[in-house]
Simulated scan of single mutants.
Amino acid sequence: MTARHDATRDRIEAELVDPLGALGLDVEAVEITPAGKRRIVRVAVDRDGGVNHDDLVEAEHEVSRVLDDADVLGEQPYTLEVTSRGVDRPLTLPRHWRRNADRLVKVTTTDGETLTGRITGCDDEAAHLDVSGQGRTLPFGEVAKALVQIEFNRPGGSPHQEA
């Protein structure tokens, strides 16, 4: 992606933070992908407790309004997609860990260790995991990559549902 695309993406994200925040939503990602003469603009949103279809419809209307009012995309046509964060996105902020409490996560640390454990909680500095029955505190600065693992036979109930 070019510096111009990065600047456009950053400006879109900045324009969306307050309006979507007023709906109780966090902007998790903005992606712009060329698609012939159009662009695809994907905006991922989330909130504590997750998002449902109605939240995504309301967010899409607000994102469309903001993009039209801000004229950040210029005259080139685009297709807008507003989605939930999804389980395939890495956990990069404390709120991502908090929102995935009790989920299984695979973590690669900055020193190359790979571990899988259940998120038991987090604070602003670290995630707390149960790794094979042992408690482990993992400072966020030591996390190189963390991804939620999909569980089909999740303990205590049905699999996690995504919007």
Rank of each mutant, 00 (worst) to 15 (best):
V43E: 00
R154G: 00
T109A: 04
Q134T: 09
E60F: 10
N100K: 12
L138E: 00
F152T: 03
V72Q: 06
G50T: 00
A146G: 06
R65M: 04
E58T: 15
V66Y: 04
T108Q: 08
G49I: 00
L91A: 04
G112V: 09
P90E: 03
I119L: 15
D102M: 13
I32P: 01
R85G: 06
T83E: 08
G49K: 01
R42K: 06
F152G: 04
Q76I: 06
G133A: 01
R118S: 13
N52C: 07
E58Q: 15
G135E: 12
F140T: 00
S64K: 12
L129M: 12
I32F: 01
E58D: 15
T92M: 11
A35F: 02
H61P: 12
V72E: 09
D123H: 06
P34M: 00
Q76D: 05
R39Y: 02
P139W: 04
W97F: 11
S64T: 15
R89G: 08
D111F: 09
T33K: 10
P139S: 07
V51N: 03
V51A: 05
Q134E: 14
E31R: 01
L67W: 04
T92L: 13
D124W: 08
V66M: 06
A127L: 09
S132R: 14
L147R: 14
C122P: 13
E81F: 06
R154P: 00
T110Q: 04
E31D: 14
A35R: 11
T116N: 14
L80H: 05
E60Y: 06
T114K: 02
T33P: 09
S64M: 12
V143W: 02
L67M: 11
D124L: 14
I32R: 01
D123P: 12
S84M: 07
Q134K: 13
F152S: 04
T120G: 14
Y78C: 01
V45A: 05
R42H: 03
E58I: 14
T110D: 01
P139L: 13
R118E: 15
V43D: 00
R39F: 01
A144W: 04
G49P: 00
E151N: 10
Q134V: 05
D46Y: 11
A146T: 02
I150L: 15
V45P: 08
E81C: 07
V143I: 14
R103C: 07
R42Y: 06
A59V: 10
V148D: 03
R99F: 11
A126I: 06
D88G: 12
A101F: 09
L73N: 01
P90L: 07
Q134W: 06
D102W: 07
H128N: 15
R136D: 04
I150S: 11
V57D: 12
L138K: 03
I150V: 15
G86N: 05
V148S: 04
E151P: 07
Q76N: 02
G117C: 14
L73D: 00
N153L: 08
T83G: 11
A144V: 08
R65C: 11
P90R: 02
D130R: 08
K145T: 10
G135C: 13
R47W: 03
G133H: 08
L147H: 13
Q134P: 09
R38S: 07
V82N: 07
S64I: 12
V131F: 09
G121V: 15
G135R: 11
G49L: 05
L67G: 09
V72K: 03
E60S: 15
L56W: 05
G117R: 08
